[in-house]
């Protein structure tokens, strides 16, 4: 049995080899319709069996906001520190929720699609992208709800509100990077899925969702806190919606985090591209 490689059969391509970056991206682009069809189907399927259906996407964070309002706002009295605590809290929760849900979805992206990968070849990056898109689509009505609540609480509606869109796009890209990283980690260690809720909870408490940054004593702790990407994304939106201001420092940090996490996620995920479907 003479190896064919020596003859290099013309017009043939060796299967299962790592594609060049350009080729990979082109392949990925050719699956764009799948990357969007799958999340739309998932969202539809998720909501078919409950009475309130897709309203739960809004109801969950709203109920959460109610709980935090009671515990932190009323009982612990944080609302005295913040001019418009309801709007402050709602922005924090909706922005945080978007990333938290993307992390949870990302953690399932690879391991839940093993049968799919075992029967079809496509750039595996489609999976974390779909996971992120699922949450991004669900986030659109959440943002609109957020606008309504903020308007009701008496904040002026200005053109700056439109800048929530680029902020949303930045955060989506950031979430994509996180989904890439978490999906590969879960592929190696299923434990990640068990740890994730606690990590997310810890992050929630550290992101200033229901308290202002000033609650943290000035110094290293505050400096670190102000670099926390979740706090950064929340502050970007709060400054737009509550202070009618563009905060260049926080926008810069958001952009930096996005670029770093998205690129790192892409590279990290692609490193095991041909392994995900192997299974055990």
């Amino acid at each position: 049995m003479k190896p064919v490689t020596e003859r290099e059969p013309d017009g043939l391509v060796q299967l299962g080899t790592k594609l060049k970056l350009r080729t990979y991206l082109r392949e990925l682009w050719s699956r764009r319709d799948f990357a969007i069809t799958a999340p739309l189907g998932d969202l539809r399927a998720q909501n078919m069996n409950s009475v309130l259906g897709s309203f739960w996407h809004l109801l969950n964070p709203l109920l959460l906001a109610g709980v935090y309002f009671l515990v932190f706002g009323v009982i612990l009295g944080v609302r005295d520190d913040v001019p418009n605590f309801v709007a402050f809290l709602v922005i924090g929760i909706f922005i945080f929720h978007f990333t938290a849900k993307s992390l949870a979805g990302g953690s399932r992206a690879v391991i839940a699609n093993l049968p799919l990968m075992q029967s079809m070849s496509f750039p595996r990056l489609v999976l974390p992208i779909s996971a992120m898109l699922t949450e991004a689509i669900a986030q659109v009505p959440a943002i609109l709800t957020m606008f309504v609540i903020i308007a009701i609480t008496g904040e002026p509606i200005t053109w700056l509100w439109l800048l929530v869109l680029p902020a949303f796009m930045l955060q989506s890209l950031f979430n994509f990077g996180l989904a890439c990283i978490i999906s590969r980690l879960t592929f190696h260690f299923r434990d990640v899925q068990n740890l994730l809720p606690y990590a997310t909870r810890l992050l929630l408490y550290l992101s200033g969702v229901f308290y202002p940054a000033e609650r943290i004593p000035a110094g290293t702790a505050r400096d670190l806190f102000e670099w926390n990407p979740m706090h950064v994304f929340i502050e970007v939106s709060r400054s737009l919606l509550l202070e009618q201001a563009v905060d260049p420092v926080y926008w810069g940090r958001a952009a930096l985090w996005t670029v770093v996490v998205a690129v790192a996620g892409f590279v990290f995920f692609r490193g095991k591209e041909n392994e995900y479907g192997r299974g055990y």
Partner: peptide, 19 residues
Amino acid sequence: AGLLPPTRGAVYARSIPVL
């Protein structure tokens, strides 16, 4: 189909096979 990398040897195809 290119879905399972061979331990040894190789598979060549003129297009991506569909399983």
